Amino acid sequence: MQALPGTLLRHLKHSVSALLPGSCALCQQQADMAVCTGCRHAYFEHQQERCLQCALPLPANAASLRCGDCLRNPPAFDMTVAVCDYAAPQDQLVLALKFGHQLALAPWFAAMLRDSILRRPAFELPHYLCAVPLGAQRLTERGFNQALEIAGPLSRQLGVPLHTKLLHRSRETARQSSLPIDARARNIRQAFSLDEHALHTVKDLHIGIIDDVMTTGMTMHEIATMLKRFGAAKVSTYVFARTLPHT
């Protein structure tokens, strides 16, 4: 019997698992979705005020919608929506998707992100969504791009087209999380390019960029800088989790 291609086999397993009773990815109790109602209430219902631009938590009664760093040195992207902090136990969900290949988590991430986007006051949907691309070597090693796995269902849930070929990774880079803060900007500089057939696609448009985690924002800043160089009017970033400054 001929073996199924890896991509087909992975999606077949995902489809079958969606039809079978499962367990919560956090508490392991039986659940009909990736995260049970109890864990969702415990870890995701509390909505804290976040910086409009970078999504870091704001202090109570903050005088501005932007944090001090964004006021002093604003990044190239215009706003960020994040579901939660990258902290225990929510960080385990990110690790399970990215390194545990639990792809069934991706549509749930997308649903949570959709709800967070729609809750934003005076929210404005982008014209296109795209995922932060992986380099060829990283994609081969992992077998999938977790940002793209989230972007697909989010695109369908929001009714916003997903442009899968808009962004390219121009060169391989070290993992941002493995580098000291002062080396991350150098690591990611000029690491992304716009598809040659889409050089005029972004002009005057609002582009939404999706990733699983925002650590320092350097990756999104680099992508937004490049998109605005080609005329994008606005760049929004959508991430499941936001790393806190001390982590």
Rank of each mutant, 00 (worst) to 15 (best):
R50A: 05
L20Q: 02
D32G: 14
L194Q: 04
E49D: 15
E149L: 07
C39Y: 00
E124W: 09
A111K: 10
A111I: 11
F230W: 09
E196C: 14
Q47Y: 05
N145W: 04
Y128A: 12
P57I: 06
Y128L: 13
F123S: 10
D69L: 11
D91M: 12
K165F: 05
A131Q: 04
P21E: 05
P57V: 00
D212A: 08
L166Y: 00
L148F: 04
D78S: 09
I188R: 02
G208I: 00
N187E: 05
K203V: 15
P75D: 00
C27S: 10
G159R: 08
G217V: 00
C36L: 07
N145G: 02
L26T: 03
A18C: 10
L179V: 09
F109K: 12
A241M: 08
A63L: 11
A232Q: 08
H101Q: 14
G159Q: 07
A110M: 01
R229N: 10
R171E: 06
M112E: 10
N145R: 07
M226Y: 02
H197G: 12
I150R: 04
R142H: 06
D204S: 13
Q146F: 05
Y86M: 09
L194I: 07
G143R: 07
C36Y: 02
C130T: 02
Q2D: 14
L113G: 04
Q48M: 13
V94Y: 00
Q53Y: 03
D91S: 10
H200F: 12
S236H: 07
G135M: 10
N187S: 01
A18S: 13
E124R: 15
T247R: 12
A106S: 09
R189A: 09
M112D: 08
A185D: 09
Q176H: 05
V35K: 05
A110W: 00
G152V: 15
L56D: 01
F240C: 09
F77Y: 08
M220Y: 04
D91T: 11
P75Q: 03
R40Q: 14
C51E: 03
A34M: 11
L134K: 02
H11Q: 15
K234H: 09
L179R: 06
E222H: 04
R186K: 14
G38T: 13
I188C: 03
E49G: 13
N73Q: 15
C24W: 02
A183E: 15
L12I: 10
P121I: 08
V239C: 08
L158T: 04
H11E: 11
L162T: 04
